[in-house]
Design a protein around this nucleic acid. Structure first.
Length: 912
RNA sequence: GCCGGCGUGGUCUAAAUGGCAAAGACGCGAGUCUUAGAAACUCGUUAAUGUGAGUUCAAAUCUCACCGCCGGUACCA
């Protein structure tokens, strides 16, 4: 053992050893409980960033902990290696996306290995390799056969900057999720997966994972699915000219409402500009009306500014519809606030009870009629025909001005009126969803080709399973002149094929799949990565899955995590898995952020907007701070006054920390230890370099202590049984009564620390156990004694503390722990080969001999008692009342009551 | 706007079930070592629950209002 701790040296040594012995390779073993620890797979951009380091440090700590706890741990890693940056690199630099991707994977694999992460590398997968995407295609065909994959012409979200189609999730907020630029709409033929078929399951099965997932993630998924219960109601349309009611069903407008109880307050029907009724009657509209309708349509293609509220616009079409409840004729308007995508694209406008309708009615002076009243005012409202409302009354209440329905509560009326509508054939109960089907077509090269063939005779034909994978061409020249068609369309060899059905010449689909398809099932592939016939063997997967702990950023709360839950349900229906939910517990780690400095560069094309941010690397910025460290001012090298913010770390913003550099300076162990120690895993981590030196110092302290006691620690006589036993539990220890009080105290601290660290791991806290280990290490230094003169009991206590400390350190700083452990056991086989186990605490030893009980008078601390841990409440109360200091406060006063919290506190309530 | 979450020393943070507000680290100060600085080591570090009310014997913890920050979301009928 070196006298000093050289991180580089021992890290290289153990990484090599682990690799050579396959220390972390896992196999099915029915004799052990399994644990599947999974972190979200990285995109091989070329470089690891601190967010990765945090994510993987958490996962690795947990994997180590579970291994030492005797679990058979699966801890794999792979690559989300399809997607745009590879293609962009190909266009920009003429690189081959495959070579670019493979090179990045190689480089990042090196980075991961330098961090010493305990992955089973033999199970690695990469989405862009044909042996993997073969099964993306396999799943697609399965879904096609099940009627879950279909093709439809739709308006899709289109990002002009990325030249890519985006799913609804990816275009959330009208901005591209990748580049942040506005999204426009285009008409394209697209492949969809019927996620909506599973909407109810996606919602209801959340009950199974409620305890293991953060509520905020489930809430976002719930909102995203957006189930809404209400009713469809048909309004018959009348032409203003004929005024003759048509019995033709096409002349009905179906609206969706959640508040059928307010239907007597309807003053109009408002439809989206794209509604069929508008198209059908378009020629009858005045020019003025047509202009307004066209303007509304055009505005919808524009960017939706995030903060600005859009002014309501509309026009009366002159058409009328009949309220089936009241028989009243209502004007049909086109309104910009009605969306064709949601519900039926038509609403009944009830301004008194809906904020949007209220605003609309105000603007166009439409009548506002209150039909729901607060229960205690219902009688008064009965007298009044109209109310001058300040704002819409959207609560439930009691119906008024609603014929026979008056006096019913909203709840009752909703049920009864829906039934009435069903009975008379003009309506039905209905549930709508915000969730749409998942559009997976991408007009890009670098993705899994959709395995479908177009045949003149047979139409759309899925490829045969035995023809999979449909491989991407090897040397495709990619260029920038794409405009909504896939680059693959230009490759005749790829496009021209024969129909799998009739054998005649046919053409291939040239769209590729959204990369979120790849990440839907990758962690099932890890269980059986070489399988050539199936995505994975259901039997093998049954052993390992579902995932016990998944760790990743909460930015994937609605995309990846909804898609993969959907995919699992499909796999269940195919018979590949037997459960509904793939992930039992989910930990969403906070972002790693840092200070950024930027100047706003105005955009000449949009002088109104604030412009674009131009970032300056922090090293080039002169910063002035106040006493609390808050930034007062910042200037660039040329004296420009800059703005500052705290943002997610990224290269382009200049606030990134390079993990390689950090590992080189401080070592992997100290780096990992620090990321976990600096903040709770779920919190945002504001990067602050200075703290890391503390963790280095801690490792050095532990190292120094072991070095000093080395000779004593490796003497076999020091411990009853060697460290090679599976457990160093308290049973084989000498009785607690032997040895001096110092060694007794140290043993107590050791067992208390084990208890704390174990509990912390079980509750997924990673910062607090590090603090506990630091305390234990401090306790060792507080222990007065020298190796030369220490008694057997002292040595025993020290050995127990050191051994526990080292084993508990393994999840955080595995290299240092391995090296120190090898000193203790006298061999270099490593902890796992030595069957080392996480220490177990003895409640007996962890218990204090005496406890300090604070005594309060009227809630204020006045004295302290020293008592035995076994002292009863009565004893504590008696001691407290007899205490001298307490008597000073209680003398001459009436004792109203004494509260005793067992083993913790006594509070005496006095009066006078 | 709406919906969540958070607010503890100079900083990051810790405190099952309401029960002694600070355990750990950073920073800072002094010292040892050193030609000096850095590193390392040793010792020290007066100071805090955003504001206001309420519930309670007892509130960082529960309730309400306000202030501030962060995240989500955007006319979903």
């Amino acid at each position: 053992m070196d006298e000093k701790y050289f991180a580089q040296k021992i890290e290289d040594k153990w990484q090599t050893k682990w690799r050579e012995t396959g220390a972390f390779e896992a196999d099915v073993d029915d004799t052990k409980p399994k644990f599947y620890a999974l972190e979200m797979l990285p995109y091989p951009s070329g470089n690891l960033h601190m967010g990765h380091v945090r994510n993987y440090s958490i996962g690795d700590a947990l994997a180590w902990y579970k291994r030492l706890k005797g679990f058979n741990v699966l801890h794999p890693i792979g690559w989300d290696s399809f997607g745009q940056p590879a293609e962009d690199a190909a266009i920009k630099r003429g690189a081959n996306p495959r070579d670019w991707t493979e090179a990045n994977i190689q480089h990042m694999t090196g980075q991961l290995q330098r961090l010493g992460l305990s992955y089973d590398w033999s199970r690695q997968m990469a989405a862009h390799r044909p042996d993997y995407y073969k099964f993306d295609q396999w799943f697609f065909i399965k879904m096609y056969e099940m009627g879950l994959a279909y093709k439809k012409k739709t308006q899709v979200n289109w990002c002009e900057t990325d030249k890519a189609v985006l799913s609804n999730e990816q275009a959330s907020g009208g901005l591209c999720w990748r580049c942040g630029n506005p999204v426009t709409k285009r008409d394209l033929e697209q492949w969809f997966l019927k996620t909506t078929n599973y909407a109810d399951q996606l919602l209801d099965d959340m009950a199974e994972i409620e305890t293991g997932w953060a509520e905020k993630v489930l809430k976002r998924q719930r909102d995203w699915i957006g189930r809404s219960e209400g009713a469809f109601v048909d309004f018959e349309v009348q032409s203003p000219k004929s005024k003759v009611r048509s019995s033709d069903s096409s002349d009905r407008i179906k609206v969706f409402t959640t508040r059928i109880d307010t239907i007597y307050g309807a003053n109009a029907i408002v439809v989206a500009a794209e509604h069929p009724i508008v198209e059908a009657n378009y020629e009858h509209f005045s020019d003025e009306t047509k202009v307004i309708i066209e303007n509304i349509k055009a505005d919808k293609l524009k960017v939706t500014d995030h903060d600005a509220e859009i002014e309501k616009e509309g026009v009366d079409t002159g058409l009328e519809a009949v309220n089936p409840f009241s028989g009243e004729e209502l004007p049909i308007w086109v309104g910009n606030y009605v969306m064709i995508e949601y519900g039926t694209g038509a609403v009944m406008s009830v301004p008194a009870h809906d904020e949007r309708d209220f605003e609309f009615a105000r603007k166009y002076h439409l009548p506002i009629r209150q039909v729901i009243s607060e229960p205690h005012l219902a009688h008064e409202h009965h007298q009044m025909q109209t109310m001058s409302l300040e704002q819409a009354f959207t609560d439930y209440g009691v119906l008024v001005h609603s014929d026979n329905w008056n006096g019913k509560t909203s709840d009752d009326a909703k049920k009864a009126m829906t039934e009435y509508a069903v009975k008379h054939g003009f309506g039905e109960g209905a549930t709508t969803y915000r969730l749409r089907d998942w559009g997976i077509s991408r007009q890009r090269f670098w993705g899994a080709p959709i395995p479908v063939v177009y045949c003149e005779k047979c139409g759309i034909v899925p490829e045969k399973y035995e023809n999979l994978p449909i491989e991407l061409p090897q040397n495709m020249v990619l260029s920038d002149d794409i405009a909504g068609t896939s680059p693959l369309a230009k490759d005749e060899n790829f496009v021209n094929t024969v129909c799998p059905n009739c054998g005649e010449p046919a053409k291939r689909e040239t769209d590729t799949m959204d990369t979120f398809v790849d990440s839907c099932w990758y962690y099932f592939r890890y269980t059986d990565p070489q399988n050539g016939d199936l995505p994975f063997d259901p039997k093998v997967a049954e052993y390992w899955t579902p995932v016990d702990q998944y760790i990743g950023g909460d930015d994937h709360a609605v995309m990846h995590l909804i898609y993969t839950r959907f995919w699992t349900k499909v796999m269940r229906d195919i018979g590949l898995v037997k459960f509904n939910e793939p992930v039992k517990r989910l930990l969403t780690q906070g972002m790693v952020v840092g200070e950024t400095f930027f100047d706003m560069i105005p955009n000449p094309e949009e002088p109104e907007s604030a412009g674009k941010r131009q970032y300056f690397p922090p090293s080039s910025v002169t910063v002035e701070r106040d006493a609390k460290g808050k930034i007062i001012s910042a200037k660039s090298a040329d004296g420009i006054v800059l703005k500052s913010a705290i943002e997610r770390m990224s290269k382009s913003k200049g606030n990134g920390v390079d993990p390689d550099e950090m590992v080189e300076i401080y070592g992997a162990d100290a780096s990992r230890l620090f990321v976990l120690f600096a903040a709770p895993a779920e919190n945002e981590l504001v990067w602050n370099e200075s703290g890391i030196e503390g963790t280095t110092r801690f490792l050095q302290r532990v190292w120094r202590f072991v070095h000093k006691w080395q000779a004593k620690l490796s003497e076999p006589s020091a411990v009853v049984d060697g460290l090679n036993s599976t457990n160093s539990n308290a049973n084989e220890n000498p009785p607690a009564t032997t040895g001096g009080s110092d060694s007794r105290k140290l043993r107590q601290k050791t067992h208390q620390s084990i208890k704390r660290v174990t509990e912390n791991f079980e509750s997924l806290q990673f910062n607090t156990p590090v603090a506990a280990l630091m305390e234990l290490s401090n306790a060792l230094y507080d222990f007065k004694g020298e190796p030369e003169t220490a008694s057997d009991a002292d040595v025993f206590a020290i050995r127990e503390a050191v051994e526990s400390l080292i084993l508990m350190l393994a999840p955080f700083a595995p290299h240092a722990a391995e090296e120190l452990y090898s000193v203790l056991v006298g061999n270099e086989n490593g902890m796992l080969a030595n069957r080392a186990r996480f220490p177990e605490f003895s409640a007996e030893l962890a218990k204090s001999d005496e406890i300090e009980i604070p005594v309060q008078i009227n809630g204020k601390l006045r004295s302290r008692l020293i008592a035995s841990p076994e002292a009863s409440n009565d004893e504590l109360q008696k001691m407290a009342l007899e205490d001298e200091k307490v008597r000073e406060w209680t003398n001459g006063k009436e004792i109203v009551k004494v509260v005793v919290v067992p083993k913790r506190l006594v509070n005496i309530v006095v009066k006078g």
